[in-house]
């Protein structure tokens, strides 16, 4: 996994600030590949309660993580009971790494 312990911890804190204290955050995609370099940061927020403003929440979280990575592109997926669950959610869940 190409994230430092500090980065992982900060991402977890940001997730809890933006999406609530019991939010879990999972890293998936190219950042899991130790041989790749740079690249987008793909994250999934797992929330147990319905999310009223999912697009805004994802955008705010992505913005704050992006600053942590000097403006690098961050893509955020949300798993929540009021949102659709698509194949990408299963991939992120199965292959992703819980931070």
């Amino acid at each position: 996994m190409r994230l430092s312990t500090e980065q992982a911890q900060t991402i977890r804190q940001l997730a809890q600030e933006v999406a609530g204290g019991d939010t879990r955050v999972r890293l998936f995609g190219s950042r899991l590949d130790d041989n790749a370099r740079g690249g987008d940061v793909d994250l999934m927020l797992e929330v147990d309660n319905p999310v009223p403003n999912p697009a805004l929440m994802a955008a705010r979280f992505a913005a704050r993580v992006s600053r942590l990575f000097q403006g690098r592109r961050v893509d955020v997926l949300i798993a929540a009971p009021n949102l659709g669950r698509f194949a990408i959610h299963d991939i992120a869940h199965d292959e992703g790494h819980l931070l």
């Binding site: 403003n53 999912p54 697009a55 805004l56 994802a58 955008a59 705010r60 992505a62 913005a63 704050r64 992006s66 600053r67 403006g71 961050v74 893509d75 955020v76 949300i78 009021n82 949102l83 659709g84 698509f86």
Partner: peptide, 27 residues
Amino acid sequence: DDWLAMRNLRNQMVHEYVEDLAILSNA
């Protein structure tokens, strides 16, 4: 932070691409 959030919202407003209509409408 708002500026970067607006940028990220743009990716969530493309209706051919975003399959979850709860996300599309909220974006």
